[in-house]
Structure formats: structure tokens, C-alpha cells
């Protein structure tokens, strides 16, 4: 087997795989969320109140192997007492068909403001996590996620 031939064959295969990926997206994706639509979803969550950066640790891989299942976790600095706790955590995206991912409702009985789940991402994009506190303030963290295509996708 000639090394040069192999390389060119692999490149052709890559081009085909990438081409097909792009085609699938155009054929099957309906209207997508946009950063503007995400802003509207966030406004609905916060009631238009100011969102401050900080207090939220948003852990999600920068580079993921398959957008079908992207693990994430959110930890918010909070004593989680009756007087001072996190009431809700909202996760929002800017390029999936819908801007909402999940809204978690917490109570002081959680003991810690810590949640983890897995999300679908149909493209490389920014994801926002927003915590609502019992004093009515909102805190956020933003992460970029680069989504790569797996090899040999299902037909």
C-alpha cells in the first residue's frame, strides 16, 4: 500500500463525510434558535431582571465527541438555607431548534446547589447557565462547546 495513495483516499473520504454531514443538517433541521431567541428565553426566565456574572461554575467539555450526549454540571455558591438559597437553574443554548435545555428547581433540602445532566447540541455554540437566588438576583456563567462529528454515522 502506497502511503501517498492512502492519504489522498482518506482525504476524499473526509470530504465525503463532511459533505454528508452538512447535507443532513440542511435537510432535517427546521428553524433554529439564534442568540436573539436565546436572549428572549433568558428574559422569560429572569422576568427581564439584570443577570450578573459569577457565583456559577458551569462544567462542560470544550470539545465533545458526539453532540447527542454532552455531559454538564452546574454548581452555585450558596449556603442553601431557607433564607438564602438557589431557587432555579436554567440552561440555554443558541443554535438548537429550541433555546431551552432544562430548568431545575431546587430547595434548601438539596443541601448543595449542584446538578448534572446531559444535553444534545447540534452545533458548536455558546451555552448559558443562569441561577435564580431566593433574594431575586440572577447569576450566570457561559461556556463554549465545540461539537465534532463521529465517524461512520448511522444511515
Amino acid at each position: 500500500m502506497n502511503g501517498g495513495l492512502m492519504r489522498s483516499a482518506t482525504t476524499r473520504r473526509n470530504a465525503l463525510a463532511l459533505g454528508l454531514g452538512a447535507l443532513t443538517i440542511t435537510l432535517t433541521r427546521p428553524a433554529r434558535a439564534t442568540p436573539e431567541i436565546m436572549e428572549q428565553a433568558i428574559k422569560a426566565f429572569t422576568g427581564g431582571k439584570r443577570v450578573q456574572e459569577g457565583r456559577v461554575t458551569f462544567d462542560i467539555s470544550l470539545l465533545v465527541e458526539n453532540g447527542n450526549s454532552v455531559p454538564f454540571s452546574v454548581l452555585v455558591e450558596s449556603p442553601m438555607t431557607k433564607a438564602d438559597h438557589v431557587t432555579r437553574i436554567g440552561i440555554f443554548n443558541e443554535k438548537n431548534p429550541l433555546p431551552d435545555v432544562a430548568i431545575f428547581t431546587l430547595t434548601p433540602r438539596c443541601g448543595r446547589a449542584s446538578v448534572a445532566s446531559r444535553m444534545r447540541l447540534n452545533d458548536t455554540q455558546f451555552i448559558t447557565a443562569i441561577a435564580e437566588l431566593s433574594d431575586g438576583s440572577y447569576w450566570s456563567a457561559v461556556s463554549e462547546v465545540i461539537v465534532t462529528l463521529p465517524a461512520c454515522v448511522e444511515d
Partner: peptide, 15 residues
């Protein structure tokens, strides 16, 4: 939790 279609198949939740 309120979940949307962006949550993975066979949903995993930890708290």
C-alpha cells in the same frame, strides 16, 4: 426539573 427536547435520550439527572 423541567426538561426540553435538548435533553439526551435516556435522560441522566444527578442532584
Amino acid at each position: 426539573a423541567e426538561l426540553f427536547p435538548a435533553i439526551t435520550a435516556n435522560p441522566f439527572l444527578a442532584f
